[in-house]
Amino acid sequence: MSRKTRLRRELLAARRLLTSEDVENAASVLASTALVLPGLAGARTVAAYVSVGREPGTRVLLDMLRARGVRVLLPVLMADNDLDWGLFEGTDRLVPAGRGLLEPSGPRLGPGAVLEAEAVLLPGLAVDGRGMRLGRGGGSYDRVLARLSAAGAHPALVVLLYDDEVVARVPEEPHDHPVDAVVTPAGARRFAR
């Protein structure tokens, strides 16, 4: 078993121990902290995601961004694990998708729509002091990050995590990209890039 696989299993097991109340309380704090983070505070277009299960909650943040007039793009998982994008028009306009995910019900904007984002919220399981992120292992966001890099786009890359998911070292591979910041219930931390 690889170090990445082992670390993913440990982190997912810890998340399963969280209560719904833990997740809800963290979501409110994460939203408040994220909204004042440089790179996200003034963004007019943000690519985000809808949290599911015990992931750090994003719905409060999505609603707050939309209330500010921010254009929020949400991912739509395609058959090849790449991501298309649609507009967030409210939680009542989200529809169930494969793998327990929720996605926007409106028109698809194409995989390149993420290039318009000034900030990208990335799901993750951990981040280390260098800003290296450990994802779930599906590769969808690796493709997004490669697309941004190939286009010369440099949006603020932000990952939302629980406090104990900021770790000493994340195993990395050549295709991995560092993030600019992590937001946890304890606060935000920016990384030099």
Rank of each mutant, 00 (worst) to 15 (best):
3 R>S: 15
5 T>F: 03
9 R>S: 14
10 E>D: 15
17 L>G: 10
17 L>C: 09
18 L>S: 02
21 E>L: 11
22 D>S: 06
23 V>C: 13
24 E>I: 06
26 A>H: 13
27 A>Y: 01
31 A>T: 10
31 A>N: 08
32 S>V: 02
38 P>N: 05
38 P>W: 08
39 G>M: 03
40 L>W: 12
40 L>I: 14
43 A>M: 08
50 V>L: 08
51 S>D: 09
51 S>P: 13
56 P>H: 12
57 G>A: 00
58 T>F: 15
59 R>P: 02
61 L>Y: 07
63 D>T: 08
63 D>W: 03
65 L>R: 07
68 R>H: 14
73 L>F: 14
75 P>L: 02
75 P>N: 04
75 P>W: 01
78 M>D: 03
79 A>S: 15
79 A>D: 15
81 N>Y: 15
83 L>R: 01
83 L>I: 05
83 L>S: 02
85 W>S: 04
85 W>T: 06
86 G>I: 03
86 G>E: 02
88 F>I: 04
91 T>F: 04
91 T>A: 03
93 R>C: 09
94 L>M: 11
94 L>C: 14
96 P>D: 05
97 A>L: 05
98 G>D: 10
99 R>A: 11
99 R>C: 07
99 R>W: 14
100 G>K: 07
100 G>C: 04
101 L>N: 08
101 L>E: 08
103 E>S: 09
104 P>V: 03
107 P>G: 07
108 R>M: 15
110 G>C: 07
116 E>D: 14
118 E>P: 13
118 E>R: 14
120 V>N: 10
120 V>D: 11
126 A>Y: 04
126 A>N: 04
128 D>Q: 09
129 G>F: 10
129 G>C: 12
132 M>R: 03
132 M>Q: 00
133 R>I: 07
133 R>L: 13
136 R>K: 11
137 G>R: 01
137 G>Q: 05
138 G>Q: 02
143 R>I: 09
144 V>F: 08
146 A>R: 13
156 A>K: 04
157 L>F: 00
157 L>C: 00
157 L>K: 06
158 V>W: 00
159 V>E: 05
162 Y>R: 03
162 Y>V: 05
162 Y>I: 02
165 E>I: 12
165 E>R: 11
167 V>K: 12
170 V>L: 02
176 D>M: 02
179 V>T: 06
179 V>L: 01
180 D>M: 05
183 V>P: 13
185 P>D: 04
188 A>V: 10
188 A>R: 09
191 F>Y: 15
193 R>L: 07
